[in-house]
């Protein structure tokens, strides 16, 4: 069963679709966050192992046999990093959007053509 992987790829596709078709800049950033959630779900599902517990060695996991009882901790650490960086980058993008709005009073991406070649 790889339902979770299918869900991740569908969210990634929906996010890309939103980024490509939407005109409103805030909607484009929302599309980016949806794609981010999709990628994170894919990464977590790669580290998942059936019938094992979280990588926390409390009383439920005997220390000697820990290697055979826990799921893969490395993708989890990477996704944790990705979430925090994602928020910082999204905040920076939104600040740029606010500055652009103050110049032209428009959120539509079609009104900003100075950099287009």
């Amino acid at each position: 069963m790889n339902l979770i992987l299918i869900l991740g790829f569908m969210l990634l596709a929906i996010g890309f679709w939103g980024m490509l078709t939407q005109k409103n800049m805030i909607k484009i950033v929302i599309g980016l966050t949806i794609a981010e959630v999709g990628v994170q779900i894919i990464m977590i599902s790669i580290g998942y192992i059936k019938e094992r517990t979280a990588p926390i060695l409390d009383s439920a996991v005997p220390l000697a046999d820990a290697v055979n009882k826990v799921v893969d901790p490395i993708p989890q650490a990477l996704v944790l990093t990705a979430i925090v960086i994602g928020v910082a980058v999204n905040a920076l993008i939104l600040s740029f959007i606010i500055r652009l709005y103050k110049e032209k009073k428009s959120l539509s991406i079609d009104d900003y053509k100075e950099m287009k070649w």
Binding site: I44, P55, I83, V84, V87
Partner: peptide, 23 residues
């Protein structure tokens, strides 16, 4: 559900809370 409580906590606090507020 996928046994990643650390990531779940981060996503709930940062992704669902702070990012929504920044938006």
């Amino acid at each position: 559900i996928m046994q990643a409580p650390d990531v779940a906590m981060t996503e709930a606090a940062i992704g669902a809370g702070l990012l929504t507020m920044i938006f």
